[in-house]
Design a protein around this nucleic acid. Sequence first.
DNA 1: TCTCTTTGCACAATCGATAGTGCAAATACT
DNA 2: AGTATTTGCACTATCGATTGTGCAAAGAGA
Lengths: 352, 352
Amino acid sequence: MKNGMRKKATIYDLSVLSGSSPSTVSAVLNGTWRKRRIKEATAALIRELAEKYQYTANRQAQGLRSSRSGLVGLLLPVHDNRYFSSMAQTFEAHVRSKGQCPIVVSASRDPQEERETAATLISYSIDELFICGATDPDGVHEVCEKAGLKHINIDLPGSKVPSVISDNYEGGRMLTEAIIRQFPADKPLAPEELYLFGGRNDHASHERIRGFRAVKRDLLAGDPDICIQTTGYSPNNTRLAFEAFYEREGRLPRALFVNSSINFEGFLRFMAGHPHETFSEMVVGCYDYDPFASFLPFPVIMIRQDIESMLAKAFEVMKEPRPAPTVHMIRPELIKPRTALAGPLDALKDID
Amino acid sequence: MKNGMRKKATIYDLSVLSGSSPSTVSAVLNGTWRKRRIKEATAALIRELAEKYQYTANRQAQGLRSSRSGLVGLLLPVHDNRYFSSMAQTFEAHVRSKGQCPIVVSASRDPQEERETAATLISYSIDELFICGATDPDGVHEVCEKAGLKHINIDLPGSKVPSVISDNYEGGRMLTEAIIRQFPADKPLAPEELYLFGGRNDHASHERIRGFRAVKRDLLAGDPDICIQTTGYSPNNTRLAFEAFYEREGRLPRALFVNSSINFEGFLRFMAGHPHETFSEMVVGCYDYDPFASFLPFPVIMIRQDIESMLAKAFEVMKEPRPAPTVHMIRPELIKPRTALAGPLDALKDID
DNA sequence: TCTCTTTGCACAATCGATAGTGCAAATACT
DNA sequence: AGTATTTGCACTATCGATTGTGCAAAGAGA
């Protein structure tokens, strides 16, 4: 085995070594050789040489010629959050199983960055783009459309192409009901004791709030507007909202519906400044699941969005030739307090 | 603005539109035009047309010609964990600021998958590879070396190229000492009451354990071997180890050093099966930081690895022409219980 | 043996950008 | 005016693969 060759082997190298033409080598190595009526023996020889010289196709050349790169993009708001990183993990498995290469990037929930990032991915001729949690899905759509790039929305719906989202209304209902039922019948919750914090002017927040209000009116017979505090998705703004509330009221609400784990982090920041006892009587529901959050010192009810099903559906829809711009809703799951779910990590073999 | 053109504009299109040759267009748009003595007016015209027709260079063609793709790879064990997803987030910011495109993939801590994944990235002619937490860094090294790809190790060191890692010995010491000091002088910890769970036969685990034992011997004057339970990185194996311990001893150790947040998830699974009181008296130290874990019902002391500094150092070393295979150690930070740190998320603007 | 078909492969154009080279026109200089 | 420079750009090969087309040699059929 003579190593040390600086440059990678190409079909031209193998062509010389095998005595066949580059096109023959190409056909053998990309699987189209039967169609081209290449002799089995020729193919075998070339495969052997390819093995010996560790040939791997140059994807840029392939992509240039075929205008398909084998790259599949996932556009996320951010990486460092269990929801989105689980999304990345599951996405990667899907893409790799199709023999393609995942490329996951984040665009900070900024409409312009979303469009520019999409454009960058397009310049690499990615084959498909999954747009997850975009602030402006239709803006990204335009960029993709113009480049003839197939794309789909996840988590937040757009209007031009199919979307696969969590059933936020139903999830909001489930979570609200679970929060209310967490209180014993002899100390029931009053309507003004259940607050929702977080979220902003996006579809997911709207639907969750709609579910929240519906159940609240049903079960608690009341729903004061003051109980909805949309703080955006910034942890710090969320913290400020809690500080303001606490300042005003001298206490926290008995029950809390937190719009996302990112808002929950804002709550943590508030917690850091206040003693344990402040929280001892409260119940929190959070739309998103995080294993550590599930074990906090007060009951935390969580909603786990069914990432696997959402992505499975998205990949399925992606396979259709010209899918209608339908919104597919996937029912999320209610997770009771103190629950440690298995995740993608569990698929790993662990040696040593 | 006449839209609707299916295919993207190329330098040939602009060449026709501008009346210049493709090479002139290319030079103007890639910035080498002054060197080529192109008239300012010609350049202006071409730039204007490029703007109008929304030209963006085809990176595959560029890459094929120049054998540089503008892609920079990060190889992770897994995505869905705060440590690695923060790594991805910070990495992405660095790469984007250099005008390149990040490509983050995971290889499940499996040596063969690590090598194959590196090979895949190489087939896309990535410019650099950051190998993070690889089980077999030197195996990946061989693949990169053979392809002439510049690379560096992060988190776990290799022997052939530079590595930037957390100072695990010092971190292990800091964490152990903090755990011990968490106990009041009148109820001090005995050597056999402090256990370490998690980790395996890797450099990071070894160093953390070395730090653990050194401090334990110093402060507690004893260090029984039984107190080290290496369970690997699987949450489930970790849970089993705790179950076994509990079965045997009828209780948990008073103090715990958990090797990583992934092992901590195994502890969560154990917690799910046991009532609150089981943990009320204990102190846990975890090597890794997770904001939610920091607020669990018992004191959790955490180590935050300094991801920003590690990556900053890695990118700095990467710039050197032929860096020596040194191991650079970055001191991690001790995080006291109930601490919610700001993260990369805080850089986001939040509108609405 | 001679035509007809099938087999097996080589040739050459192409994808979109880059960079070395060469050459006419414009300008400078004597 | 005549030569020497400089300016401004076009030409062309190249990166590594894909694919439509063409053609010689081998085999089949009469």
